[in-house]
Nucleic acid binder design. Structure first.
Lengths: 391, 391
DNA sequence: GTGTCGGCCGTCTGCCGACAA
DNA sequence: TTGTCGGCAGACGGCCGACAC
């Protein structure tokens, strides 16, 4: 007889752990990820959402997925709720957002109201992130802590002891406690995590190439998180619903919400998604309407480095136009074709969105003379590329 | 060094391993699961599909999911394709089916054609299934093989040797080889799997309560599969798409296919789904139109036992009517309210579908006098419960 | 007939400094 | 400064029959 096994309290996978540590979530998500603030207005891109599903199921959007002609390529929404989550199995971070498309009337008034540029991302100050080496993940030994990292984020050791050591207790995203013996020994001296480390490695199923990060906050609390090496294959178990149905579901949910001005829920998985697809309205408006771009123009764009910091890559705009003229005409999603300066950047996306880049102008930046009030109601109508608007 | 187990070919989760062992798949799916044959006509129930998603995501269908008024509660479809699959991570078995709703005209002619009752389920003959004990999964020892099982499904040992032993090689659903030392020893003598067993247990992450099964087929090949104890927590990582969107997706995909008579794809996960939701047309027609049921009538229904065999439970029909009169009026899905004889059956579903039960008639079963040709076009129209039809 | 245990041996885990990159 | 290794001691994996249910 197939019965559900008792004991485990499963019901509350989500909904209970609402208040997980925000600093830790952001640290795991990476330096480039920022979440829009509750109560603000955002622009939601079904295309970007679709890309997230495609990346996760490792399957392209099939051509026989129905069109949703009444679903615009971007939806201005009120952001009612944002909660941070972490997958119980994999520790993947993701955010749940509740969006409500503005009414037609409200959409027109959008430019009369101040619009938010989005909060800056708050990466913790006292933290470090290390990519695990073969030795770190081997059963032969412990974890070698980079010296500066240990001195910055671990409680100070009593160096008069020989060897100096202490017990560290760190909490992960699920509020589980992990205990480590932190010791400063060897010749030359180095910081190591010994007892407790291997338990952590096997529990989290870490392998060489994955990253671990520690945070030391103002309340003298220690947190730790993980970032898995992007195994090309984080294929989500689709043993229950076909990827086609998932794509359709996302589109239908958005279309229904748009038609009825009702709320809908989306999940944003920053490390699975190629790009953010919920953009603060102000950031969008500024990039699309108040920035002059044209073919041949040079630009900079931020990327995350291996060591979880950011660096800029340079490139040149090679074209402007629809990514998918059939399904998503007149969309600003990845409307900019680009070429990258460095040959090592060969794997970078050949198309970006306007709000992702920072155009380099030879002439000084000036406050936009363009009136905030548009003459034509928006977002209905013809293609509205910046070049046309700034005529 | 602790490395991710080599050899796993991740890239080809689906698509490649089309021809996985059918016997093994059915053994893992259980004795009650049967798949309709390719080329036949089936009845697809969006409600049942929805229940599968609800069970997997552990979330009820939200009330704000849009209605699909043009999506009937059952869809007669041509079954174009059925492939058996197994989840790479968990070994969960599931089937992918390609369905094509019949045209309106074809739907009317359904009863003029012979309809298939569905193939009987083919459980392998030489197989056994054992629920793992604490000792079986402990690191302290190996696997204790039930005597009859060993004699039935393992190659015979040479009992003149002391102790008799041999090397067994078995293949799993992914065609991976597993080697075990099979020995007959101890006082009293018993069959054991020793060397190789613990590797298997840890690789498959088996725990006490899970089941393992072995098959010995006609070609003298040995296969093995697993069935996890239904941790209600096979919650699929929904870090990418909300369960609402999944529900909508399934409905929208079916609605679109119904409207355009085009093909759509569904996944059927027999151990995650509360009930089958793709039913052979003949089985459906027989149950719904050629069987007389009424309140107070007694019936039998098959269930799977702990030991992977089947037994009948008895019950009484307590009511007949819509499960969800608002969303799914006039549906035959779980239209029968029942009470179960045994108090231990308290967790059994209070509602079943007609094709799941075997009504007990005090009067002899007679060939249905009901004409095969319906007067009223079907499936449009008013509720068509058997009682009304047999007036 | 089979689940669990004590006993016993061998392998591997895991802590140490050496050494080199 | 830190990744990997050889050395070593102790823990645990894993094979055995005893024993009980």
């Amino acid at each position: 007889m197939r019965l559900s096994s008792p004991g485990l309290n499963h019901q509350s996978q989500e909904g209970e752990k609402k208040c997980l540590n925000s600093e830790l979530w952001h640290a795991c998500a990476g330096p480039l990820v920022s979440l829009p603030s509750v109560g603000t207005r955002v622009v939601y891109f079904p295309q970007g959402h679709s890309e997230q599903v495609a990346a996760s199921t490792n399957k392209e959007v099939d051509s026989h997925i129905p069109n949703y002609p009444n679903l615009p390529p971007q939806l201005i929404c009120q952001l009612h709720n944002v909660t941070m989550h972490a997958d119980v199995e994999t520790d993947e971070v993701y955010a749940q957002m509740t969006l409500q498309p503005l009414s037609q009337q409200e959409q027109k008034e959008v430019y009369l109201l101040p619009s938010e540029l989005g909060t800056a991302n708050k990466q913790p100050t006292n933290y470090f992130c290390k990519t695990l080496t073969a030795s770190d993940t081997s059963t032969h030994g412990g974890f070698s802590v980079p010296r500066r990292a240990a001195e910055k984020v671990f409680p100070p050791l009593d160096y008069s002891q020989q060897p100096p050591c202490q017990e560290l207790i760190a909490r992960d995203l699920h509020d589980n406690e992990w205990k480590f013996r932190h010791i400063f020994r060897g010749q030359p001296k180095r910081h190591l995590l010994t007892t407790g480390w291997s338990v952590f490695v096997s529990a989290k199923r870490l392998v060489a190439g994955d990253s671990v990060l520690f945070i030391w906050n103002e309340k003298n609390q220690l947190f730790l998180g993980i970032r898995r090496a992007s195994r090309p294959q984080t294929v989500m178990p689709s043993s229950v619903l076909s990827s086609d149905s998932m794509h359709i579901g996302l589109l239908a949910a958005a279309a229904h919400a748009a038609a009825t001005n009702s709320r809908f829920t989306i999940f944003y998985n920053p490390r699975a998604s190629p790009s953010e697809f919920v953009i603060p309205l102000g950031k969008y408006v500024k990039a699309v309407y108040h920035t002059r771009v044209s073919v041949g123009m040079r630009f900079r764009m931020l990327f995350e480095t291996e060591e979880s910091s950011v660096r800029r890559y340079m490139g040149t705009i090679t074209g402007i136009g629809d990514l998918d003229p059939v399904r998503w005409p007149n969309s600003h999603w990845r409307s900019v074709k680009v070429g990258w300066d460095e040959s090592t950047a060969g794997e970078k996306q050949p198309r970006v969105s306007l709000w992702e880049i920072e155009p380099l102008t030879t002439f000084p930046m000036y406050p936009s003379p363009f009136p905030l009030r548009l003459k034509r109601p928006w977002p209905t109508g013809l293609p509205t590329f910046p070049g046309m608007l700034l005529r």
